[in-house]
Design a protein around this nucleic acid. Structure first.
Length: 919
RNA sequence: GGGCGGCUAGCUCAGUUGGUUAGAGCGCUACGUUGACAUCGUAGAGGUCACAAGUUCAAGUCUUGUGCCGCCCACCA
């Protein structure tokens, strides 16, 4: 960055406007070169506490969007704040291979560009393509992340599908298998016929749709009708379920009917199940165990036969006469036609129902029985003293070992966990972690008709080997499937810290010992259940420890109309575009200020532009401070370079009123901002900073300084600016670092010490400046109301009461700060002709104004009302405190609280009684 | 069907355990170049805090009910 260098070397006047593009890249390089992104290089005492955030790895399917930017802004803010606070701050970067999503993208690309499917290429060649694609997007993502100013420790960068993670995943699988947590079984799973893969429950989405509900009889021999929206599955019915309370059908329960249903022989048992709703349809339900989750459960409970009707390609299986090979839609039409012909169809009606579709491709889900690997969440485990994964994960939240921000998400997490079923972890796709299981003499399923237990108990005649390394010997074939992407990302918090090598015999070492458990997981609320819950379970299993202490959940970034940003809608804002247009700092501010945890954020370019204006304001504040300091203030340097003592020093003599005022405000600001950041109130901290910077420092103190002759003023200006830069740095790292360099500092602001607040100003009469401020504002108001010609310089007389001396001393400010007053006379003490002790201004030959007393009558009423309220309140509380019952029953804490309140109100009342009609 | 959240200025939203006259940014109106900043300055208008009832000395804040919007969960075939 040539310009960056120029500015530093030549020490000329700063440009009028801050141009981020001239500074940002150069500054990021300097940071990176310094090595301080890596906590090992921070100059810290051995016992410095660590502060760790592991970056939720973005999917490598696409470049980053503003949602990622908001994540980066918030996490970088936390990391930079804690780094400055003296923590061993580690922010660990990485990317996610996002198995299904990535494979989908590459498949689509392949089809579009070459007209080929993955099967045309074969597994190996296809995976090569995926890796090619991946490298491209990965590098874009990493570049974007740097553009955001993220202070990530790149030396520890990880990928969910790189070698160390592969090792960790295999080890985890083997451990879980050996503990009996992972098992293989057949279940009805959500099958996407297009993706050719199973989907976890939470990957299924629901769409409201209109469907036809058919009411029909299986055959003439069958005693009553049933209703269904999917007649084609009825080819595999093995039972009819009714509600046990239903009087209409009670007599049939337990009977078995053999029927001829549109040419197919069915053996139907009448069973009772309390989930059957009597009011829906005919109150009787055809049970198809192979093609409905609910029916599968009924089959298990009633020992029913399972007949597979539909295959993995979404077509009717063999053995179903003319229906075989037809799609479900075709078969449905054929069956309905036949029923109609035979006069078995009783009713056809439109109903609303919920269609389950694949969350990736929107294809309707086909529930199918399939052999899969599962994580048993209910298995009682020795390592948990007989508790299950599920129970332990619930405990962690209930005991507040893990805290949620905002709190409401704890409930959502618990609801989810309490209803958690076994987690299907195998996927029929190629891209991902291959399941570390090998089979010998792999047996093909010959019979379409298998009993439920046969399936679950894994009765096939095959040898199974589960291990990190492939087995020795001949004839082994590895499982074709890969693992659910959440299995590897569920281990992200510790697989990135060297597990399993850093965890031997229950003892942590290396990075794991130093940085685990992490402090915060910051992520979007939409993956609370998908991801967060899994990370908690997997960490508990592998390390018997929680993965993070806090979960901070951010919302989605929406466009200015409240719509989700998407490429297809074209309403998305590209982070790189707006960074180029307004600068990274402005983008970061717009994502942090006005954003609260758990709530979605609407963002528009106008908002970002507003913050661009603010960065420029800060720039110009610095510009004024620097160019107005005619002499360099010598600064003491600590031996420790870059970590100077940061306590505000108040050795400066001859402070002006404005100086005292701004320094005290600064104290409060440091305290407030520190507290807010510690409690995840980023938006509030930012607003307080903005208020101080713009409304207090720039509008008043800086303006006042133009008319002060104090020798200390440069020192005060520099001190405030310095501290302000430190406070702002986690929010907008670039412009603050840029100014820091312009101030001729040879350290990096990034590793400066966070300001500490001292109470040095306690008791200083900073309220005096407020008084002057009020006088000035009152004069301005008076002028505006009376439409005095702006150019006209006027004379003013002020009766200052007992503050006359004080006011006189600030004459230069009252005259100069946009009051339009040319001459000012301060008259006497306590001489206000209207109110004793009031401050009174007479602007000569125009009018007379009383400061603060805008509407005397109104003010009197208000004070009276408040007084009455307070009196009532005091009487009530006194009564309460005199009540022996209350004293006896209430906890001491409450009694004390009441007493404190009483004291406070009494003081307030006293103040009120003595109050003048003054601000 | 069950659960959760939202409703505050024209717009986008803050408002920490109930406590002075409910705030900010943008937008709008009028005026304005005074030694950094027009990406600026000064002043101003604008709110029955969705609605109703209740608790309280005091309610945007707590309770109950209603309405609209959104999200999550569920084995409605």
């Amino acid at each position: 960055m040539a310009n960056f260098g120029n500015v530093v070397n030549m020490k000329q006047e700063l440009p009028k406007a801050y141009d981020p593009s001239q500074y940002e890249d150069g500054i990021y390089k300097k940071w990176e070169k310094s090595g301080f992104f890596n906590p090992d290089n921070l100059d810290l005492p051995e016992n410095a506490p660590s502060y760790t955030i592991v970056l939720p790895p973005p999917n490598i399917t696409d470049k980053l969007h503003l949602g990622h930017s908001s994540m980066l802004a918030i996490e970088d803010l936390l990391i930079r704040y804690h780094r400055m606070k003296g923590y061993r701050a580690l922010w660990l970067p990485g990317t996610d291979h996002a198995a299904i999503a990535t494979q989908n993208v590459v498949e689509k690309k392949l089809l579009k560009e070459e007209g080929k499917t993955r099967h045309d290429l074969g597994r190996e060649k296809f995976l090569e393509r995926v890796w090619e694609f991946l490298k491209e997007t990965q590098s874009i993502i990493l570049r974007q992340t740097r553009k955001m100013g993220a202070s990530l420790d790149w030396s520890r960068e990880a990928f969910t599908l790189d070698e160390p993670r592969e090792k960790a995943v295999k080890k985890m699988f083997v451990d879980m298998y050996e503990a009996g947590v992972i098992y293989r079984g057949e279940r009805v799973v959500n099958w996407c016929p297009r993706c050719h893969s199973t989907l976890a429950d939470d990957e299924v989405e629901y769409k409201d749709q209109k469907a036809k509900l058919y009411t029909f009889k299986y055959s003439y021999d069958f005693p009553f009708a049933i209703a269904t929206t999917r007649p084609e599955t009825k080819l595999g019915d093995t039972a009819v379920a009714v509600n046990p309370k239903d009087k209409r059908y009670k007599k049939y329960i337990g009977k078995i009917y053999e029927v001829d249903f549109v040419g197919i022989k069915l053996k139907l048992k009448i069973i009772a199940d309390r989930h059957v709703e009597m009011d829906f349809g005919t109150g009787a339900l055809g049970v198809t165990p192979a093609h409905s989750m609910a029916d599968w459960q009924m089959a298990e409970a009633n020992d029913l036969e399972i007949i597979k009707v539909i295959g993995e390609d979404g077509k009717i299986n063999n053995n179903f006469l003319e229906y075989s090979g037809k799609t479900v839609e075709q078969a449905r039409d054929m069956i309905i036609e036949k029923l109609r012909k035979n006069n078995l169809l009783e009713k056809e009606e439109e109903i609303e129902n919920n269609l389950s579709v694949c969350y990736r491709c929107n294809t309707p889900i086909e529930p199918l029985p399939s052999k899969q690997w599962f994580v048993n969440v209910n298995k009682k485990l020795k390592r948990f003293n007989g508790k299950s994964l599920k129970e332990k994960a619930i405990e962690a939240a209930k005991n507040k070992e893990i805290k949620f921000i905002p709190e409401k998400f704890e409930k959502r997490y618990l609801d989810w966990m309490e209803n958690l079923h076994d987690w299907c972890i195998s996927r029929q796709i190629w891209f991902g972690h291959r399941i570390p299981v090998w089979y010998r003499n792999k047996l093909k399923v010959k019979s379409e008709k298998l009993k439920v237990e046969d399936k679950i108990n894994n009765l096939e005649n095959q040898e199974i080997y589960v291990g990190v390394e492939p087995p020795e010997g001949e004839g082994w074939a590895q499982d074709e499937d890969t693992l659910d992407t959440w299995f590897s990302s569920g281990m992200w918090t510790f697989s990135t810290l060297g597990w399993p090598d850093t965890f031997k015999n229950g003892k942590k070492s290396g990075d794991l010992a130093r940085f685990y458990p992490t402090q915060v997981l910051e992520t979007g609320y939409e993956i609370l259940t998908l991801w967060v819950s899994r990370m908690i379970m997997m960490s508990l299993f592998a390390l018997r420890e929680i993965p993070f202490e806090n979960v901070y959940l951010h919302g989605m970034v929406l466009d200015k109309y409240g719509k989700k940003m998407s490429k297809s809608k074209g309403n998305g804002i590209d982070p790189l575009d707006v960074i180029e247009k307004f600068g990274t700092d402005a983008v970061r501010l717009s994502l942090v200020i006005g954003n609260t945890p758990g709530n979605d954020l609407r963002l528009s370019e106008e908002k970002i532009a507003g913050f661009r204006n603010f960065t420029n304001k800060l720039w110009n504040i610095a510009r004024y401070v620097l160019q107005s300091s005619k002499f360099k203030v010598p600064r003491p340097r600590n031996a420790q370079r870059g970590r100077q003592s940061s306590k505000l020093q108040f050795k400066i003599q001859n402070l002006t009123l404005a100086d005292e005022w701004i320094l005290e405000k600064l104290q409060n600001l440091i305290k407030d901002v520190s507290e807010d950041l510690g409690n995840y109130r980023f938006s509030q901290a930012g607003e307080k900073l903005r208020e101080f910077t713009w409304s207090d420092f720039a509008d008043w103190h800086l303006e006042a300084s133009k008319f002060e002759k104090s020798e200390a003023k440069q020192q005060v200006l520099l001190m405030v600016l310095e501290n302000l830069l430190k406070l702002w740095h986690p929010f907008m790292p670039f412009v603050t670092e840029a100014i820091w360099r312009e101030m001729d500092k040879d350290s990096l602001l990034m590793v400066e010490k966070w300001p500490a607040f001292a109470k040095a100003t306690a008791g200083k009469p900073s309220g005096n400046f407020e008084l002057i401020k009020n006088i000035i504002i009152a004069i301005r108001n008076a002028r505006a109301e009376n439409k005095i010609e702006p150019a006209r310089k006027i004379k003013a007389v002020i009766y200052g009461g007992k503050n006359a001396k004080l006011i006189k001393s600030q004459e230069h400010l009252i005259k100069n700060l946009r009051t339009g007053i040319k001459e000012l006379n301060i008259v006497g003490t306590g001489q206000c002709p209207v109110h004793k002790d009031a401050i009174y201004i007479a602007v000569a030959d125009i009018e007379i104004y009383l400061i603060g007393a805008v509407d005397e009558e109104k003010e009197k009423i208000r004070i009276k009302k408040e007084r009455e309220n307070l009196e009532k309140l005091i009487v009530n509380t006194e009564k309460k405190l005199a009540d022996k019952e209350f004293i006896k029953k209430a906890p001491a804490r409450i009694v004390k609280q009441e007493k404190d309140k009483l004291k406070l109100w009494q003081e307030e009342l006293a103040k009120l009684k003595g109050q003048l009609i003054l601000p």
